[in-house]
Design a protein around this nucleic acid. Structure first.
Lengths: 343, 343
DNA sequence: GCTGTATGGGAGAGCGCTCTCCCATGAATT
DNA sequence: AATTCATGGGAGAGCGCTCTCCCATACAGC
């Protein structure tokens, strides 16, 4: 069963009675080969159990047929934090989407965590060695170094979320502003009039835009000012922000939290103060992550089509690997309002 | 900055004024080289920005210096489920541990999901092509096919958790029985006398052993029979099992749930019935995952040292890649009781 | 008939490394 | 002084592919 010296093209050629070149042509469908010879070759491949040697092929094609998924962002150097990031449902959906989109090409992505500048260097070296042809970057915080470093070693990258500053990187993003607007629209449509907001970290463009859209939406409904507290996307920060807002705006009846986790924290804080959700206060989250689906009450939220976005990232990257000449491009996806119990 | 034609060994040799072989020796520290020449070579590497070409090296060494992490288990074909598995905190900790242990070697693991037999084939082909030297297998359910398939193509694998049937695979596991025993011991030590259990799926060896240990522990404390309900490791199944047990054994005062998620579900069910935790009923979970830490009350649990286990998996795999001749080995880790509020 | 042109196959160079030989040198042994 | 031997360097083969040439054949057009 296990042929120790793995068969080579030469072996297949001998069995098929043709030259190495012909076998290569059949396998790569790179030029016309007479149908009957194709058949013979294919049978020989079958018989020998031949599988092309990736290293040999890569050596001449200068392609590894591999891609890397780089997870960057907050300092993950304490393992707890890193574990939590990998654990983030948001990330899980994205990664699953990436793996699924890569599977038909027989590619399995290499996973890397970029926690500090030393990691950036190691990752760049990894790409330069030719271990992977391109990178998919996922980072919660705008990260400018890697795309440029990778571009320097001739490796294209596609980023999830728009970078803070334009660079040599394509990206896929959500229409965050539109998402915020949808949240306001929905809350207004169910008769709420005293909105507040729990924003994400405002140095993140996405957090800014969600908030801007939300405010814009309320402005249209005659509510020019929306009290807001800044959170950090986490459960605890949502809880804290909610407490603060309850102090500042006791009469509030609607909350938009820029992440489901913060929405969950907010709902907890509301419960502690005896406010019922959604009767007293309606809550809308963002992401449509597991907490939104599973917690009680289920959280009405703005869904990011992460699987589709992941597939698009893959498509963009493979395209740029194929032909690096065109400029980086970006694709923006529309969010979807998902109704549950909280609003 | 970006040298389009990446420098080769030849280039470095020319700059250093030595032969290709000498440069190779310095880089790989493979034979004695005069210190002053080493210095010259190292400077030449610096100057040229040389990085060895992985493909060329792999072609001759027949090593890819890559490893794969294969996530197998329940049918993940619906993306929801798969996303959830990647999302599992258990998995996140393990994966983080693996990545961390691999990092010093400059290896970034390729992530693969094995959802069905076709995937097994694709994964095996991937390894046979020489894309990776060995596999780390993580599956919640005993999976027999892959280790043998990989062994057939000459790739060692290390599994997380003991396989149902012995095979050509090393593994790392927890002393589950001991964990169950610890849970019983602790519950008995705080004066509980009416224990019940929510087990994991009993076709899983680990679930069986946790339960066996738990029963053994109680037997020592004069409680030969422990009512049990089977769950599926999930939140919902824990809630359901708890309800069933409350019906069957209304006087219960202690619960051991074979996963933190089930413990969380159980606590929820207990709350619905007006039972206070831990005053009326003490609850012990298993894993020490995020839910155990973050939920209220915090769940007293049996911790798996997943990071250490992941590091050991990596160690075992690299060792077997280095020298495949010795038989597969296994390493068993001891669990740790983590005290929180629930018991 | 001869040339022109597809069509399909083979020969062989060469991708960038590693590693086995082999050789030059100088120190140690006799 | 002659021989052995350890030490450190170079030459060059070859890993398994791809791909550019080149050539043989078949068939069309004149």
């Amino acid at each position: 069963m296990s042929a120790d010296p793995s068969p080579t093209l030469e072996d297949v050629a001998r069995v098929a009675g043709v030259s190495r070149a012909t076998v290569s042509r059949v396998i790569n469908q790179t030029r016309n080969v007479a149908p009957e010879i194709q058949e013979v070759v294919r049978r020989a491949v079958e018989v020998t159990g031949y599988v092309p040697n990736r290293a040999a092929r890569s050596l001449v094609t200068r392609r590894s047929e591999a891609v890397g998924v780089v997870v960057a962002g907050t300092d993950l150097s304490d393992s707890l934090n890193a574990g939590q990031f990998l654990t983030d449902p948001f990330f899980g959906r994205l990664l699953t989407g990436i793996i699924g989109a890569l599977k038909p090409r027989g590619i399995f992505p290499a996973l890397m965590l970029a926690e500090n500048p030393a990691d950036d260097l190691a990752i760049t070296a990894y790409f330069k060695q030719g271990n992977a042809d391109g990178a998919l970057l996922i980072s919660t915080y705008p990260d400018e170094r890697l795309p440029a470093m990778l571009a320097d070693v001739g490796r294209p990258s596609v980023r999830f979320a728009r970078p803070a500053h334009p660079g040599p990187v394509s990206y896929v993003d959500l229409a965050h502003r539109e998402g915020g607007r949808m949240a306001a629209e929905h809350l207004a449509s169910i008769g709420r009039r005293r909105p507040v907001a729990i924003t994400g970290p405002l140095e993140i463009p996405a957090a800014q835009e969600r908030q801007a859209g939300y405010e814009e939406g309320w402005a249209r409904h005659g509510c020019p000012f929306v009290p807001a507290a800044e959170g950090g996307f986490t459960y605890d920060s949502g809880e804290r922000a909610m407490k603060e807002l309850l102090d500042r705006v006791p009469e509030l009846d609607a909350v938009f939290a820029a992440s489901d986790l913060m929405a969950q924290g907010a709902i907890h804080a509301l419960g502690d103060q005896g406010r019922r959700v959604p009767d007293d206060v309606a809550v809308v989250g963002f992401d449509d992550s597991a907490p939104a689906r599973l917690s009680r009450p289920g959280i009405t939220t703005i869904r990011q089509p992460l699987e589709a976005m992941a597939a698009e990232m893959v498509r963009l990257l493979l395209q740029r690997i194929e032909d690096p000449s065109p400029d980086p491009t970006s694709v923006i996806f529309d969010p979807v309002l998902v109704l549950r119990e909280s609003a």
